[in-house]
Design a protein around this nucleic acid. Structure first.
Lengths: 239, 239
DNA sequence: ACGTGTGAAAGATTTCACAGCG
DNA sequence: CGCTGTGAAATCTTTCACACGT
């Protein structure tokens, strides 16, 4: 078949509530009509991680079988996942790791920096702030917000903690923000989500254990830590 | 139809890798042949959270419609999810919140305490340790482990940090542990998983960004934080 | 020969429609 | 009458088999 960038990418998918799976939770989320499955996108991100790890030691090439073994899925699925977006391999040979990394990064929109703000500078928020993986993939946490007067004005990792009520002026003077991470208690999560949406944030990563309501154009992914343990508990008791 | 406890609970499901979705992760995980869907279990845990929140303010009764609205799913799904396990509602009326909570907790195996150990006392590990939700649902973090000599011997939240190499003797003297939380870097996650499995841990909650290999009787749920952001990035670039 | 790419089959989950019962 | 419980249909995802290209 001739080269073709994406086979079916007309109607952008709306929103997801993945489990996490990797637990996250949850996270569920189904593909919208004739769309690329949500789970394909999750796996693509996992393939990318594996490829980046292998890049430093690898031979330069990888087959769908090898990638599948690393990702603990089967090789048909690896090929199917990739084939939604184009033909990246060479028959009889496999995929060139470096170029596959480039392609997957492009698919996932990682070829540019994304400005992120973090709301909720508690234990979890601080842990997320110090998490290396975000910066490595181009996610730049550029603002910290909280509602606790004792925290506002303090500096954490070179970033000033601001009042959530100053969010609008922050965006006006510092430029648009694409993603908001919500690491606040359940009772204030929806308020924070509304505030973020109001200033133009288009993606929410929610760690509060409550399902959020957001307009359909805002992507919402929730990670529910307790839910994941409860799921384990269920399977433990099934024996 | 006559009362019947569980419709299909013969072959216990094996393992899942949910996204979290609730990010986590990821995390996918499909039901095994004729089994109860993994996603049903995740939603059950979410329903439980909602019910517990509503219990304090509610009228005592809830319909599948109301619960569905809170959980952002549709009411058919709520009823189907519950019907896998029994008939808990009253036709024409709805579900009694208190008794539904009791039933769901029983289904999820939350009617007893589960001993949990945490490996990796970095930022994320500490955040998990201080996370309220775990204890509330009966998950008791009873041991901390790390490999950093600077941390071993220190005390965090009344728990001594121990060397991962003393895990076996910890289990021997303190009793069995059912669940292990892995909050270590990717390069040591598989080693930690192996160590945990070797001392009899039956459930793993993995925060390292790498798919783990574990025997089929060990439930593994992964929460991959970066993956969740990358998924958001994908949907952001689809417009 | 070998491994990718993909249409078609199989399998799983969700939605629907309605019977059933308080 | 209203809302649950559920078989059947619709939809979505994964698996498979094999044609194709190098």
């Amino acid at each position: 078949m001739a080269k073709r960038k994406a086979k079916a990418t007309k109607t952008a998918a709306k929103s997801g509530r993945p489990r996490s799976p990797s637990g996250s939770s949850r996270k569920q989320g189904r593909a919208i009509k004739g769309e690329i499955p949500y789970s394909t996108i999750v796996r693509l991100a996992q393939y990318l991680r594996i490829l980046e790890r292998l890049q430093t030691v690898g031979t330069g090439k990888i087959s769908s079988n090898e990638l599948a073994r690393e990702a603990k899925v089967n090789s048909f699925l690896v090929r199917k996942d990739l084939s939604y977006f184009g033909e990246f391999g060479v028959r009889g040979v496999g995929y060139e790791i470096k170029s596959l990394i480039r392609e997957v990064r492009k698919i996932l929109g990682l070829n540019r920096e994304r400005r992120v703000i973090l709301v909720g500078v508690g234990h979890l928020g601080r842990a997320l702030l110090s998490y290396k993986g975000f910066a490595e993939e181009g996610f730049c946490i550029c603002g910290l917000f909280d509602s606790d007067p004792a925290k506002i004005g303090t500096t954490v990792r070179n970033l000033e903690v601001r009042s959530i009520f100053t969010l609008e002026e922050f965006v006006e003077s510092n430029g648009a923000v694409e993603i908001g991470i919500i690491a606040v208690p359940a009772f204030s999560a929806q308020f924070v989500a509304n505030t973020l949406v109001a200033v133009g944030v288009k993606g929410l990563l929610n760690f509060a254990p409550i399902p959020l309501t957001a307009p359909p154009h805002v992507i919402t992914v929730s990670v529910d830590l307790t839910t994941n343990l409860e799921v384990i508990s269920y399977y433990l008791s099934q024996r």
